[in-house]
Design a protein around this nucleic acid. Structure first.
Lengths: 344, 344
DNA sequence: ATTAGCACTCTATATTGAAGAGTGCTAATA
DNA sequence: TATTAGCACTCTTCAATATAGAGTGCTAAT
C-alpha cells in the first residue's frame, strides 16, 4: 500500500513532522533547508515538498503557506520510527518503581496506570477495565443488608471485586446466608460465569427452595451485567483532560467545547477501546481514520493487555492531537500495557 | 448588617438582577423603565441606580455602561426570594418519580442525584458521600484472594459498602476466615468504628493469635481511612461540567481553562462541601466570598443531608455562575437534599 | 541538478471610523 | 419638591482598511 520514498524525501518528511509536532505551525521550506541534514537550498526543498504534497503526505492549509502533515504523512512517519524508537531503560525503571501495587485492588491499579501515563505523556490516557464475563470466579458471599435486601459480593480472578444489591424474596437470617455462601463456594471454584450457570443448575439442592431463589437472583444479575455495563465509571478510566487543553489546537472556544462534549459521552471511547482489545499489540488511529469524526485532528494510540492465563482482558489508550509526539508516546503506551499484563 | 432598602429601590434591584440572570449583559436604565412595574422614566431610574451603586449593590463595568449586580446585590436578592420561592409540587413529583432506588447501593444513588440535579438545573452539581467513620457497622467479611492477600468487605449503615485488600501474615484457609467472620460479626453488631475498637480489644479471644493479627490488620486500615479518603472518586461526585461551558461567562479560552483547572483538583470542592456539611440547611457562597478566588463570578449553593438516625452525613451542592437562577436552583438543591435524607 | 531572484498570494495584526448604547447633568415641568 | 425631557459626552463593538511578513511557484542563471 505504502509508496516507496526516496531517502531525501523521507528526510524532509520527517523534518516537517518533527517540527510541526513541536510548534504546531505550518513548516516552511526555508526552515527545513536550514535544519535538516540534507544540504540543500530552500528552492530545492520546495521542489521536494511540492512532490510530497502530490503524493498526499503533506498539505498546504492555503495557497503559499507552509506545509502540514496529513494522516498518510503521520502513518508513514510512525511506521518508520516504530522500528527504531524504544523506551529508555531509565524511564522504564522510573515507571515501574512508581507503580505501587501492594494492597490495591484492580480499580486502584488502573487509576494509577492512568495517572502515571498522564504524567509521562502529557496527553489524555484512557483505560478499559478487564471484562469479568470470562474471568474465573473465586468467591461469592451473601451478606444481609436489611429485611428485603441482600448484598452479593463476587470476587473474580485478577483482583476484580463486584458488589451487587439484590432484593430478597423473604427475610433471610445472616446465618442462613452464610451457609449458602459456603455451599455455593464449593461449587464455583474456578469456573467462569457461563460455566457456573450449568454447574449450578445441575448441582442444585432441590429441597432448598430458598437457596434456589437466591441463585436465580444472582444468575439474573449476571445476565444483566453481561451485555450492559452497569456503571461506566468502573469500566472506563479517563485521565486528565487538562493535558489536551494545553495543546494549541484546542486554544479556541469552539474546539475546546467540542472536545469536552466528545468525551462527556464515554460510549465512543469505549467502542474504540473494545475494538483495540480484540487486536494484538499497538494500534494507532489517526485523525479522520476512525468514525471519530467528532473531532478532527485527534489521534489515539491503543494497546491491549491480558493476564498470563489469557483471561481478564482489557485495553489501554492515549488520546492526543494528531500532532502528538509518537516517538515517546507509543513506547510509553506499549510499556504500560506490558506492565499491566505483569501485574494482573 | 443589611441596609434597609426602599421598596422602589428593591424593585429596581430585582429587575436588574433578574434581567442580568437571563442575558448576562449589563442592564440599562431605559430597559428597566420599560419593564419594571414602577412607572418611572429612565431618568428617574438612573437616579435610583446611582444610589444603588453608592450602596454597593450594583456596579458599572466601565463609565457609562449598564449596571451589573455585585455580590452584595445577589445576597440581598437571595434573602428576599428565599422567603417566597418554593419548588412546585409538580417538579417535586417529577424528581421523586425519576429517582430509582431499587437494588442500588449508595454509590449509584448519589450518581443518580448528581445526574438529576444536572438535568433540572443546567448547572454543575457536586455531592459529597457520607463519611462512614461514625456510621454503624453492619457486617465484616473476610474472603481469601490468594496466599498472601485477603479481601475485607465492610458493610455500614445506609448501604455503604467498602472493599479493602489487606496482606495476610500467613496463608489462611477460606474456612478459617469464614469462622472468624462469624465470630467478629457477633461482636460488631451496631457499633461504629471507634466503639468497635474498644469492643474488639475487650472481647478478643486470647488464644487465637491469628485472629488477633487479622483484627489488627483491619483496625490499622480503619485508622488509615479515617483521616485520609483513599479514593476521591468514591467521596466526591461531580456532575457534567459541560453545563457550565454553555454559560456566556465561560465563552472565552482563558476562562474556560481556569474553570477546568479549578475542578481538576477536587480538594477545593471537597473542602467547601465539608464546610457545608457541618452547617444545617442551605448555604450560599457567592463569587469572591470564599477562598474560591480561583474563579471569580462563580457561586455555590450547598445543603447538608443526613440519615434519620443522625449518622451518615454528607452534603450536596450546585456550582453555577454568580449570575445563576437562584429562584429555581435553591429549591432544587434543597429538595434534593431532603430526598437524600429520606432514601438513606 | 541545483539555486538565486522576484513577483505574487495569503494571513495576521494594527489602525481607523462610524454606529450605538448608556450615562450624568441641567433645565423645564407638574 | 419630585420627576422628566433633552443633550453632550464616554466608552464599546464591529467592520473596513492598510501594512508587514512569511512562504510559495516559477524562471533564468549557474
Amino acid at each position: 500500500m505504502e509508496e516507496f520514498l526516496n531517502e531525501r524525501f523521507q528526510e524532509v518528511l520527517h523534518c516537517i513532522i518533527e517540527e510541526y509536532i513541536v510548534t504546531a505551525n505550518p513548516v516552511g521550506s526555508k526552515f527545513i533547508a536550514g535544519k535538516c541534514s540534507l544540504n540543500l537550498s530552500s528552492a530545492s526543498i520546495r521542489n521536494i515538498m511540492a512532490s510530497l504534497e502530490e503524493k498526499g503526505y503533506i498539505h498546504q492549509p492555503y495557497f503559499s503557506a507552509g506545509r502540514v502533515p496529513t494522516s498518510s504523512g503521520y502513518k508513514f512517519y510512525i511506521n518508520s520510527i516504530l522500528k527504531t524508537k524504544k523506551i529508555s531503560k531509565q524511564q522504564k525503571e522510573e515507571i515501574r518503581s512508581s507503580f505501587n501495587i501492594s494492597g490495591k485492588d484492580i480499580k486502584k491499579i488502573l487509576w494509577q496506570a492512568v495517572h502515571l501515563l498522564s504524567e509521562i505523556s502529557h496527553y489524555m490516557p484512557i483505560v478499559l477495565a478487564p471484562e469479568r464475563t470470562y474471568a474465573n470466579l473465586l468467591h461469592i458471599e451473601f451478606i444481609k443488608l436489611d429485611k428485603s435486601n441482600l448484598l452479593v459480593v463476587t470476587v473474580f480472578d485478577g483482583g476484580i471485586v463486584e458488589n451487587k444489591i439484590i432484593s430478597a424474596d423473604r427475610d433471610y437470617a445472616q446465618a442462613e446466608l452464610s451457609k449458602y455462601s459456603v455451599k455455593l463456594n464449593e461449587i464455583i471454584n474456578g469456573h467462569n460465569i457461563d460455566e457456573l450457570k450449568d454447574v449450578i443448575l445441575k448441582s442444585i439442592d432441590k429441597d432448598r427452595k430458598s437457596f434456589f431463589s437466591l441463585l436465580n437472583g444472582i444468575i439474573f444479575n449476571f445476565d444483566l451485567a453481561k451485555d450492559k455495563i452497569v456503571n461506566e465509571d468502573d469500566y472506563l478510566y479517563i485521565g486528565s483532560r487538562m493535558n489536551l487543553f494545553d495543546e494549541p489546537e484546542f486554544s479556541n472556544y469552539e474546539k475546546i467545547k467540542s472536545l469536552v462534549k466528545a468525551f462527556e459521552d464515554k460510549k465512543t471511547i469505549i467502542k474504540l477501546l473494545e475494538l483495540a482489545k480484540q487486536k494484538e499489540g499497538i494500534h494507532i488511529f489517526i485523525g479522520s481514520d476512525t468514525e471519530w469524526s467528532d473531532i478532527n485532528g485527534l489521534s489515539v494510540i491503543t494497546a491491549s493487555y491480558h493476564s498470563k492465563k489469557g483471561f481478564a482482558e482489557g485495553s489501554i489508550g492515549l488520546i492526543g492531537p494528531s500532532r502528538m509526539n509518537y516517538a515517546t508516546a507509543i513506547p510509553a503506551v506499549n510499556y504500560m500495557a506490558k506492565l499491566l499484563c505483569d501485574i494482573i
